[in-house]
Amino acid sequence: MLYINCPHCGMRSQNEFSYGGDASVKRPELNKEVSDQEWDNFVYNRKSLRGKHLELWQHISGCRQWIKVERDTVTHEIFRTFKADEEVA
């Protein structure tokens, strides 16, 4: 069982969350020319890092906020959590 420290609600069990994938993926800006490659990178292509991975989770059975979680994809250790709009240093 993972325990995720929601920045809004505190420590909660994994059962309250749903997963949203790689948080480092950026949607291409709409008011400029976007190449097919940029769309591919946004929609399909993923690094799927082994080790520290910044990812989105939604506290769907809690405050319903999207949050960012820094987690190890080998040990499942969770290092830090952030609000969705928080910059990750």
């Binding site: 069982m1 994994q14 059962n15 997963y19 994938g21 994809t73 499942h76």
Partner: peptide, 13 residues
Amino acid sequence: DGYNSYAQRGNLP
């Protein structure tokens, strides 16, 4: 299990 993982073991939920 639903999240990216390279661990060859899962969780109970």
